[in-house]
């Protein structure tokens, strides 16, 4: 299911839409499980030239994240191991993800896997994959 929406909504309508979408996701999950709630959190965007994937993976050595594209599926895998609290200390709140992770994204047919680039900054892994030349809409000038 595709949702076309603004990246940074601010209005009450966007807020309501967000709630509604949350409900829709509850009842209509993807075959690979709900996209929401996993680690790392993912934002996916599209431009006429590329597909942009943002994986929110804070506190990880980027070299330890495995990024693979195979048969039109992008896989992100790795591990984030948080140290156990020292003895004599008490863990009051423990919400941060710890352990191995794996997330999978189906890519559109028109991407060029060889063109993918990945950058890590402030805990965000940004993967950009170009679309094939022929798929980029061209404006044809009238002679």
């Amino acid at each position: 299911m595709y949702f076309h929406r603004s990246f940074f909504p601010g209005s009450i309508f966007a807020e309501l839409e967000r709630l509604q979408r949350g409900l829709e996701q509850t009842y209509d999950p993807s075959i690979r499980g709900g996209l929401r709630g996993g680690f790392p959190a993912l934002n996916i965007g599209s431009t006429p030239q590329s597909v942009e994937i943002y994986a929110f993976a804070p506190g990880i050595d980027p070299a330890a994240i495995e990024v693979q594209i195979e048969k039109g599926v992008l896989t992100l895998a790795g591990e984030r191991n948080l140290p156990a609290p020292p003895k004599q200390a008490t863990l009051h709140i423990g919400e941060r993800f710890s352990g191995r992770f794996r997330r999978v994204v189906s890519l559109p047919d028109d991407v060029e896997p060889d063109s993918a680039t990945a950058k890590y900054r402030d805990g965000v892994l940004h993967i950009s994959i170009a679309r094939k030349e022929s798929a980029v809409p061209r404006r044809i000038s009238i002679q």
Binding site: R5, R36, S46, T47, E52, H126
Partner: peptide, 13 residues
């Protein structure tokens, strides 16, 4: 974080 101009959101956690 950097977002290319004209990007349309498909999915947002």
């Amino acid at each position: 974080f950097a977002i290319p101009e004209g990007m349309e959101s498909i999915h947002a956690d």
